[in-house]
């Protein structure tokens, strides 16, 4: 009999304790609300005091971007990608020469002379796993995730959604016809 009433008492008291907690949350909603009104309010990028050279530490995971003027076509990013979402095709050209016809600059912003013409640099963002592995080996730091240290150059885009699946394949290289490539490569015309 005693246990019977103890059980009832325990039930009532613990249930009311729970109700008191939810009540407290309900009346303090103005202080406690954590909702972000998404399309109007965006998730703020965390305030990051890195304290060292930001160029080396690309602390963001977002969509990839390639500065094609700096790409030397070394294929390091393609090789390191664990899901094979990067595809690069290159052709041998004269070292360090600008070829304006196909949008090729001979010298990168770091001063490296390019020996390869990149005719194709595709990244399939539907397959990208945002592991950030491709940005580290890049010798020219031309592939990076947007919104990080280079956010002045490229606004952060949360959604980067598309209506067509094929639009998620980002083609960074300038479109070139075979003749253009043939002219540009000249006698070095073998495909690499």
């Amino acid at each position: 009999m005693r246990a019977y009433f103890t059980t009832i008492w325990e039930s009532v008291s613990t249930l009311i304790t729970g109700m008191a907690i939810t009540w407290r949350h309900m009346v303090n909603i103005r202080k406690g609300s954590v909702t972000l009104q998404y399309p109007e309010e965006r998730w703020p990028r965390p305030e990051r005091d890195i304290g060292f050279d930001q160029g080396e530490y690309n602390v963001i995971r977002s969509r990839l971007h390639v500065d094609m003027d700096d790409c030397i076509g070394c294929l390091k990013c393609e090789r390191v990608c664990p899901v094979d979402c990067i595809k690069i095709e290159t052709h041998r050209v004269d070292k360090g020469e600008d070829i304006p016809d196909v949008g090729h600059t001979g010298i990168t912003s770091n001063g490296t002379k390019k020996a390869l013409l990149v005719t194709r640099f595709d990244i399939d963002m539907t397959e990208c796993c945002y592991c950030n592995l491709c940005t580290y080996p890049c010798p020219e730091e031309c592939i990076y995730m947007t919104g990080g240290p280079n956010s002045e150059k490229h606004q952060i885009d949360y959604e980067f959604s598309q209506y067509d699946r094929n639009d998620m394949v980002y083609r960074f290289a300038k479109e070139t016809s075979e003749e253009q490539v043939a002219i540009a490569t000249g006698e070095n015309g073998e495909k690499k």
Binding site: T22, W23, H25, M26, I29, G32, S33, V34, T35, Q37, E40
Partner: peptide, 14 residues
Amino acid sequence: VSSFMQDKVGPMGQ
């Protein structure tokens, strides 16, 4: 009520 108890604001709009 459920939203307020769960620390969110529930349906909102302009």
